[in-house]
Computed example of a mutant assay.
Amino acid sequence: MKPSSLWLALAFGATALTGALAAGSSPAPGALVLSGTLKEQSDDTDTGLFTVPWRGGGGQVEARIASVAGVSPVIASAPLQSGGRFALTLPATLDRSLLPPVPQDPLPATLPPPVPGAACTGSVKLGDPTIRVVQLSLSVKATKSGVVVPVVVSTPNEAQPTAPARTQQGLLYYAERPTAMNGTQTCQWTDHGVRTRMTTRMEGPLKQGWNKLTLDMTSLSSGAELDVTFHLTSGALPTDDWTLMPEADPGPAPSGG
């Protein structure tokens, strides 16, 4: 897989993100208010992910919880303006039924595992291995529908042909208790004559409740070698623009609507 294809696949399938309550009321203490603008992909995606202004008109955004248990029904929704603007309020707390048993992996469906048989050193982990963490998935329903993700993609160009391909993807986690992310893991393997070195790092605190994160992914290919890095940090999203990913599945349709 070419580096640009790798980043498009990650941006399309890595994760679904953010959500909201109906607009018009003051948020409860501890609630997280998100605002942003929808974008959509241009028709030219051969060399990277390029966005254009939203052309899907008005509609609705819907929030779901994604975890090892699957994707929940809609937990909150809010209107979408015709120009792509939205303002979403996440509930301060989640019902315990939305928090699955503690998984083996430290975080929900974010960091790709190494291939079977890879030689690895180090580890990435949460300070509290018993904590339950879930991820938010945000989708849109309008004349265009699908999952939306805050993502920024840069690819090498003629001026900098040896620069790494880079994708910064925003994530929203809900943690039942405060903890911290830490650790570095490096894995190497060879497949079809290509030696791959994958480094995964995560750092930063997770507070109780909602957390904004950025997964910074870079790829640099040189001959028969590929260096891939995943760096997960907490504190902020990479952008307030949310890009429609039409190939992704927004989850089950809400009943009665």
Score class of each variant (00 low, 15 high):
1 M>L: 06
2 K>C: 05
2 K>W: 03
7 W>P: 05
8 L>M: 14
13 G>S: 08
22 A>C: 13
23 A>K: 11
23 A>G: 15
25 S>C: 06
26 S>A: 11
27 P>H: 10
27 P>Q: 09
28 A>S: 14
29 P>E: 01
33 V>W: 12
33 V>A: 10
35 S>I: 11
38 L>Q: 03
46 D>W: 04
48 G>V: 02
51 T>L: 04
52 V>M: 07
52 V>N: 01
57 G>Y: 08
60 Q>E: 15
66 A>Q: 13
66 A>H: 13
66 A>P: 06
67 S>Y: 05
71 V>H: 03
71 V>A: 02
73 P>R: 09
74 V>Q: 03
74 V>M: 04
75 I>Q: 02
75 I>C: 00
75 I>L: 02
79 P>D: 06
79 P>Q: 07
85 R>M: 03
85 R>L: 11
85 R>V: 09
88 L>Y: 03
89 T>I: 05
93 T>H: 12
94 L>Q: 10
95 D>P: 00
95 D>K: 00
99 L>K: 01
101 P>H: 00
101 P>K: 01
102 V>G: 08
103 P>H: 02
104 Q>H: 06
113 P>E: 14
114 P>C: 05
114 P>E: 06
115 V>W: 01
118 A>M: 04
120 C>W: 02
120 C>G: 08
122 G>K: 07
125 K>N: 15
126 L>S: 05
126 L>R: 04
127 G>M: 09
127 G>Q: 12
128 D>A: 06
130 T>F: 12
132 R>L: 03
132 R>T: 09
139 S>A: 09
142 A>P: 04
143 T>H: 05
143 T>D: 05
144 K>A: 13
145 S>T: 15
146 G>T: 11
148 V>K: 12
148 V>P: 14
149 V>K: 03
150 P>G: 12
150 P>I: 09
151 V>I: 10
153 V>Y: 03
156 P>Q: 10
160 Q>E: 14
162 T>M: 09
163 A>N: 11
163 A>R: 11
164 P>E: 02
167 T>W: 06
169 Q>C: 06
172 L>P: 12
173 Y>R: 01
173 Y>M: 14
177 R>S: 12
178 P>I: 02
183 G>N: 06
184 T>M: 09
185 Q>K: 14
185 Q>A: 11
187 C>W: 09
191 D>T: 07
192 H>D: 15
193 G>W: 08
195 R>C: 08
198 M>D: 12
199 T>N: 08
201 R>Q: 14
202 M>W: 14
211 N>K: 00
212 K>H: 08
214 T>K: 01
219 S>D: 10
222 S>C: 01
223 G>W: 02
225 E>N: 13
228 V>P: 14
228 V>A: 10
231 H>N: 15
232 L>V: 12
234 S>T: 15
234 S>D: 14
235 G>Y: 01
235 G>V: 10
237 L>S: 11
237 L>F: 10
240 D>M: 05
242 W>I: 03
243 T>D: 00
244 L>D: 00
251 G>Q: 15
251 G>M: 10
252 P>N: 13
255 S>N: 13
257 G>T: 09
